[in-house]
Design a binder for these strands. Sequence first.
RNA 1: GGGCCUGUAGCUCAGUCGGUAGAGCAGGCGGCUCUUAACCGCAAGGUCCAGGGUUCGAAUCCCUGCAGGCCCGCCA
Length: 517
Amino acid sequence: MPTGNALTEERRHKREKWREGGDEPYPHGFPGRVSLASVRAEVAGREPGSELAGTLRRVAGRVLTIRQHGKTAFVPLRDQSGELQLFLRVDDLGEAGYQRTLDTLDPGDLVGAEGVPVVTRRGEPSLRACSVKLLAKALRPPPEKWHGLVDTEARLRQRYVDLLSSPEVLRSFEGRSALLAEMRRLLSAEGFLEVETPVLGRVASGGLAHPFVTHYRFLEEDFRLRVALELPLKRLLVGGFEKVFEIGKVFRNEDLDADHSPEFTMMELYWAYADYGDVRGLVERLTQALARAAAPYLPKEEAEQRVRDFTPPYATVDYVERLEKESGISGIVELPRERLLELARGVGAKVYASMSHGAALDKLFGHYVESRFERPTFVLDYPLETTPLAKRHRSKPGRVERFELFYRGIELGNAYTELNDPDDQEARFREQLPPPSGPGGADAQEETYAYDEDFVEALRYGMPPAGGLGMGVDRLVMAMLGLSSIKDAILFLPTRARPTGPSIEGPGRGDAGGAGP
RNA sequence: GGGCCUGUAGCUCAGUCGGUAGAGCAGGCGGCUCUUAACCGCAAGGUCCAGGGUUCGAAUCCCUGCAGGCCCGCCA
């Protein structure tokens, strides 16, 4: 049976034969089921050919393949815990039951079985089944059994197929969950309270980005999806929260590539009466804990390497000193804006006429320095103009108290001693505002922190001195689990609409009961 | 935005010099009572991404489009 549609029909046909035999192909449950790994553990280390006589176990999982040898068959199953094969025999199931089971099952089906834990003569832990039930008939065949799904586009469009056919992908996302749990555990242990703030807002501020715009019908107004969590959380400091954090999606209407996704997860925290030095210590504790939490999801050597890498203290470098060293230009910060723009243009950076001194400097920093850090490294004390929400440095003029953490060439986090002077904040926002028109206006707008008037008003009521931190959770997951693309760290990513429908079965090739509208 | 590459069976991939389509897995039929990428035999399965062009003849060469990947630039 050749085409996808014919394969589907063949499976429907088997399903109906099963139903005609008096069994429901989609039953309501399978009570008393234990994990495949637990059965495997029960017989681990026993002699080949032995069995746990008198013990009955019920298991469930997805059929991986069916190896039939006349009057016996082996049917490996997989559940989230691992794999275990069913051992089917005519002697146990009866002639009719055996035949009917094998006539019904296909790779990809979900089945439940009851039987005796055994070790086969070849030493494979198995369940010698006395009963096999269909729990859900799969109408689509799984991808090819030893490559799985490899086409990146298909993996993203149908992540469920990727997951069901590639246990290492599922494992990796289990690792993500473990890291998130550890992050919450540690922050909670440090006394931080988790809060939730709005995704939709009148202004998308707190970060540099193109916002997504949507329409709020109740308010009859266009709103934007947040690009950062910062400003609502700082309002909470004004209100009296002293240690808060939020883990949530932020949205930046920009490109998807190996380390950027338009919809990504950010963790931000704010800590009253602390400064960026305190936050640095916290970042060390947090990343160290995460590296340890990642260990069960990594090969032994990689896990050890990760734990070694994230053993504090981490290296620290001064932004200006390092930029001067790497660029070979001493006194680079004192150069006039025009000269910096020239230099930035010279290294291939995107520049525009109205770009600020600090922005130009940051382009050069990005080119000469940023991707160089392999081990965890804190870069300290950024130029004032790059960072309108951070407090001026207590001893370095023209700079702010800010650090970023780099690992393997990517930025993992960003922290400040938070600016809490309302008048300074207002002035800094105003400096950011681009000229209303003229060359570079549109581009400049892209790289400007939106002015949030109400936030300045909040500061006028008094915000305690505070340290703040933002970390890209997806990138942390990549760093800890050793993933090279953010696509492997986020379960569902956007893909372009297909003119001809979904990849496996589109309109025209589809069957009547199939894919959606 | 720039460059390179890819699109062939449900999946993973071949396809030479331009001569009209191949394998493995999955599926069908048959065989096999300890396999584990099971094995053996038989038969079947194609919108070669789409459109146009060159040509006696195009999966193959050219153009355009669509979708995707990787690298660079840039935002976390």
